[in-house]
Protein backbone atom coordinates (compact mmCIF):
# COMPACT_ATOMS: atom_id res chain seq x y z
CA UNK A 1 0.00 0.00 0.00
CA UNK A 2 1.32 3.42 -0.97
CA UNK A 3 -0.88 5.22 1.54
CA UNK A 4 -0.98 4.15 5.18
CA UNK A 5 -4.01 4.39 7.45
CA UNK A 6 -2.18 7.13 9.31
CA UNK A 7 -1.56 9.12 6.09
CA UNK A 8 -5.20 8.75 5.17
CA UNK A 9 -6.46 9.98 8.52
CA UNK A 10 -4.01 12.92 8.47
CA UNK A 11 -5.23 14.00 5.05
CA UNK A 12 -8.84 13.55 6.19
CA UNK A 13 -8.24 15.93 9.11
CA UNK A 14 -6.62 18.47 6.78
CA UNK A 15 -9.63 18.09 4.46
CA UNK A 16 -12.13 18.44 7.33
CA UNK A 17 -13.60 15.08 6.41
CA UNK A 18 -14.26 12.15 8.70
CA UNK A 19 -13.35 8.71 7.35
CA UNK A 20 -14.91 6.00 9.48
CA UNK A 21 -12.81 2.95 10.32
CA UNK A 22 -14.99 0.65 8.24
CA UNK A 23 -14.42 2.95 5.23
CA UNK A 24 -10.63 2.97 5.50
CA UNK A 25 -9.98 -0.21 3.53
CA UNK A 26 -12.15 0.93 0.61
CA UNK A 27 -10.46 4.34 0.48
CA UNK A 28 -6.97 2.86 0.77
CA UNK A 29 -7.66 0.34 -1.99
CA UNK A 30 -8.94 3.00 -4.38
CA UNK A 31 -6.15 5.46 -3.58
CA UNK A 32 -3.55 2.75 -4.00
CA UNK A 33 -4.85 1.84 -7.44
CA UNK A 34 -5.02 5.48 -8.56
CA UNK A 35 -1.60 6.45 -7.18
CA UNK A 36 0.00 3.31 -8.61
CA UNK A 37 -1.30 4.32 -12.04
CA UNK A 38 0.12 7.80 -11.52
CA UNK A 39 3.55 6.35 -10.89
CA UNK A 40 3.99 6.36 -14.67
CA UNK A 41 5.02 10.00 -14.17
CA UNK A 42 8.16 8.99 -12.32
CA UNK A 43 9.50 7.41 -15.52
CA UNK A 44 9.79 10.91 -17.00
CA UNK A 45 12.89 12.98 -16.39
CA UNK A 46 11.60 16.47 -15.64
CA UNK A 47 14.73 17.91 -14.03
CA UNK A 48 14.99 20.86 -16.40
CA UNK A 49 11.28 21.32 -17.06
CA UNK A 50 9.55 24.39 -15.68
CA UNK A 51 6.14 23.78 -14.08
CA UNK A 52 3.05 25.25 -15.74
CA UNK A 53 0.34 26.70 -13.52
CA UNK A 54 -1.72 28.35 -16.25
CA UNK A 55 -1.56 27.16 -19.83
CA UNK A 56 -1.74 30.63 -21.34
CA UNK A 57 0.51 33.56 -20.43
CA UNK A 58 -0.92 35.30 -17.37
CA UNK A 59 -0.05 38.59 -15.78
CA UNK A 60 -1.13 40.04 -12.50
CA UNK A 61 -4.16 42.22 -13.09
CA UNK A 62 -4.42 45.66 -11.49
CA UNK A 63 -7.24 48.16 -11.43
CA UNK A 64 -7.93 51.54 -9.90
CA UNK A 65 -9.07 51.39 -6.30
CA UNK A 66 -12.43 53.06 -6.73
CA UNK A 67 -15.58 52.67 -4.69
CA UNK A 68 -18.25 50.77 -6.59
CA UNK A 69 -21.54 49.25 -5.71
CA UNK A 70 -21.22 45.70 -4.42
CA UNK A 71 -23.41 43.01 -2.96
CA UNK A 72 -25.41 44.41 -0.01
CA UNK A 73 -25.21 42.89 3.45
CA UNK A 74 -28.64 41.34 3.24
CA UNK A 75 -27.97 39.66 -0.10
CA UNK A 76 -24.57 38.48 1.12
CA UNK A 77 -26.15 36.92 4.20
CA UNK A 78 -29.18 35.51 2.42
CA UNK A 79 -27.66 32.03 2.00
CA UNK A 80 -26.05 31.82 5.45
CA UNK A 81 -27.09 28.70 7.36
CA UNK A 82 -27.18 30.72 10.57
CA UNK A 83 -27.00 34.48 11.08
CA UNK A 84 -27.69 37.03 13.79
CA UNK A 85 -27.74 40.85 13.79
CA UNK A 86 -26.15 41.05 10.35
CA UNK A 87 -23.38 38.55 11.10
CA UNK A 88 -22.64 34.94 10.23
CA UNK A 89 -23.09 32.81 13.33
CA UNK A 90 -20.79 29.87 14.13
CA UNK A 91 -20.43 27.54 17.11
CA UNK A 92 -18.36 28.91 19.96
CA UNK A 93 -14.67 29.04 19.07
CA UNK A 94 -13.07 30.26 22.32
CA UNK A 95 -13.41 28.63 25.70
CA UNK A 96 -15.02 30.61 28.55
Amino acid sequence: MKVTKEDLQNVAVLSRLAIAEDQEEKYLGQLDKILTYMDNLSALDTTDVKPTTYALPMQNVFREDVVKESLGREAALANAPLKEDGYFKVPKVLED
Binding site: S42, T46, K50, P51
Partner: peptide, 13 residues
Protein backbone atom coordinates in the same frame (compact mmCIF):
# COMPACT_ATOMS: atom_id res chain seq x y z
CA UNK B 1 3.00 14.41 -7.22
CA UNK B 2 1.79 17.98 -7.59
CA UNK B 3 5.00 19.64 -8.77
CA UNK B 4 5.72 16.69 -11.06
CA UNK B 5 2.24 16.98 -12.56
CA UNK B 6 2.73 20.69 -13.28
CA UNK B 7 6.01 19.91 -15.05
CA UNK B 8 4.33 17.22 -17.13
CA UNK B 9 1.69 19.81 -17.98
CA UNK B 10 4.49 21.83 -19.60
CA UNK B 11 5.52 18.80 -21.67
CA UNK B 12 1.95 18.07 -22.79
CA UNK B 13 1.62 21.67 -23.89
Amino acid sequence: YYLKAMKVRTLVQ
